[in-house]
Design a protein around this nucleic acid. Structure first.
Lengths: 162, 162
DNA sequence: GTTACTGCAAACTTTTTGCACGACA
DNA sequence: TGTCGTGCAAAAAGTTTGCAGTAAC
């Protein structure tokens, strides 16, 4: 946990510095939203972040959370997770990584893998444009959902939910 | 174009067969929605499909298009493209493929590549769950946007729009 | 003291749902 | 003919925007 904790502290420090440099004001609300997402590895959506921050700032409004996340994303401090439809999710992990996505419950988890990092854009892609990043998405069923299914028996098998 | 055309005809045939087998009724609206998406390689969103179909069935309603696309997806005949946020997009190409995504304009194009098909889930992923599919996303700037930028000069450089 | 940020409310966009009429099998 | 699908309208969910007061610098 020490590793994760120091990473988190570092992220919050980086947020503060970047806000100062960008002449954006370092408000209580922004700091708490930044902390909320920096401590979170589950790619939360806006509503979830809002609920989390509200425990510390009960008067914060949902649109402030939206605006703050947009600002942090514009500064490149966090990234929109463009993996699933539905509510927008954010990711404070800017290190190169990939995603595992549960097709049952929508869970998204980071996958760090040197093998996947090594994947390069193929020649064919050059016809379409300039490739700047390569990300691999693994889709499947998470442990939790697999557990539920073996208990209840198969319930459904149709198309992708996520 | 003959290749693409026969592929398209085949898809529409597959749609009809699958609808019959699933005791879903073969209505005029469903057939035209199916045709619209079968002929399209640009991963259109619901609104775009609606506009396209409306040229042939001016009285069709947007929610019918929504419902039809949901039905086709539930039957596994088309897939939701889970690549970007924003409006949901659909893809009639069920062959294994990957995606190129323009971070400027949101364009999504299919990328077929044996090299990318060969990418396998790493060991680490087994801790998270059972991986069923692997898809690679290439993000970058498409030809059209690259052309615009070199004309107007750089206008912006902040985070991901898509 | 400025200027930017927040909270509130209202608007907007995308998607879903309830219901009565009409079409498919 | 019976059931399913459609169109309409209204609602729900997610997100953005305008404005007046408040807080940061």
């Amino acid at each position: 946990m020490t590793r994760a904790h120091s990473e988190m502290v570092e992220r919050i420090g980086r947020f503060s510095d970047a806000l100062k440099k960008s002449r954006l004001r370092l408000t209580h609300q922004r700091l708490e939203v930044a902390r909320e997402i920096a401590c979170n590895t589950t790619h939360p959506d806006v509503e979830t972040i809002y609920q989390g921050v509200r425990q510390r700032i009960p008067t914060i409004s949902l649109d402030t959370v939206y605006r703050t996340l947009a600002s942090l994303a514009a500064l490149g401090l966090i990234a929109r997770v463009s993996v699933s439809s539905g509510p927008t999710r954010y990711d404070a992990n800017l290190a190169r990584h990939h995603h595992f996505l549960c097709t049952r419950c929508g869970l998204i988890r980071d996958v760090c893998s040197a093998a996947l990092d090594a994947v390069r854009a193929p020649e064919e892609a050059n016809d379409l444009g300039t490739v700047e990043s390569v990300e691999v998405q693994l889709r499947g069923v998470c442990e939790a959902c697999a557990g539920k299914e073996s208990l209840h028996g198969k319930e459904e098998g149709h198309g992708e939910h996520w």
